[in-house]
């Protein structure tokens, strides 16, 4: 039983937790505020907090930069594409491993996870070479395939754990209730598997969106997603803090929202079930 806690204590914990929470969140908050300032206000001394002329000019400026729309499109296509391709390959595999486990299932699963731990630099040059040879360097399809491959172990793993949670008795009940295999899949299995598939998709879009090794090194312009686009701000060009902030907010906002929805899946997806 939980004990009743005195309000005084609760207020104290609340203050402490909020203080640390805001401290960790502060860089994002500051970026958010700066993105609405003019460039001059952005570097004002002393720093300006909330009371300034809020402006959207940075967002307009960023949108107008020639390569922003392209980078955004690339990010969306690469993140969504690699995730869906991964799901397509992973669903049958995870399904089979969860429902028809064999003696070697566990070994296969662990082997798949071990490929995730291969350091990227170990295969950097061959990949560049192969991409050049196939003529796909700086193309979306290359990144879709590469990001799919590096996230496939996580996709398989997450789906496997979700599928395994579907109790066998329910499938037996459906069989007793007269469902054919087809009906069993349509009416019982799929509805129970969909939430798991959805959260797997969500988490993997986030991972693919933020991937910043292959996306930086395998693209130049045409297929460059937001990771690369933002990196191009690393060489300063006059006053640019406000525009940098606006570009950053555009790159992280959608993922922050998705991330908040997938907190719980994060633990499952990134610890491979080692923490429950």
């Amino acid at each position: 039983m939980a004990r009743a806690v005195s309000t005084q204590k609760k207020v104290m914990w609340t203050a402490l937790a909020w203080a640390f929470g805001l401290l960790l969140f502060f860089p994002i908050l500051w970026t958010f505020l700066t993105s609405f300032k003019s460039e001059a206000t952005a570097i004002a001394d002393p720093p300006v907090w909330f009371f300034f002329d809020w402006t959207l000019e940075n967002y307009t400026a960023v949108q107008e930069r020639s390569n922003y729309p392209l980078a955004l499109t690339n990010s969306i296509i690469i993140a969504v594409g690699s995730t869906l391709l991964g799901i397509l390959i992973a669903v049958p595999a995870a399904w089979a491993m969860a429902f028809v486990p064999g003696k070697r299932t566990k070994d296969v699963l662990l082997w798949m996870l071990s490929t995730k731990m291969l350091p990227a630099v170990g295969v950097l040059y061959p990949l560049v070479l192969l991409a050049k040879w196939l003529g796909v360097l700086d193309s979306r399809i290359l990144l879709i395939v590469v990001l799919m491959l590096i996230n496939l172990p996580i996709i398989v793993w997450m789906l496997y754990t979700y599928f395994r949670e579907i109790p066998g008795e329910i499938l037996e009940a459906a069989r007793m209730d007269g469902a054919s295999l087809r009906n069993e899949i349509i009416y019982v299995l799929t509805p129970m598997a969909v939430p798991g598939i959805a959260s797997t998709i969500l988490l993997n879009i986030i991972l693919a969106w933020n991937e910043a090794f292959w996306t930086i090194l395998l693209t130049t312009v045409d297929a460059a997603p937001l990771t690369k686009f933002i990196a191009s701000y690393s060489s300063p060009e006059g006053l640019f803090y406000a525009k940098l902030s606006a570009a950053s907010m555009l790159a992280i906002a959608p993922i922050l929202v998705m991330g908040w929805f997938s907190q719980k899946q994060l633990v499952r997806g990134l610890t491979f079930g080692a923490v429950k």
């Binding site: 929470g21 860089p27 933002i230 950053s248 992280i252 993922i255 922050l256 991330g259 994060l266």
Partner: peptide
């Protein structure tokens, strides 16, 4: 608030 930084793109957090 606490979990947010994890979802920030590495290039963004480095630049910010």
């Amino acid at each position: 608030l606490v979990i947010a930084p994890f979802f920030v793109m590495p290039t963004v957090s480095a630049l910010v």
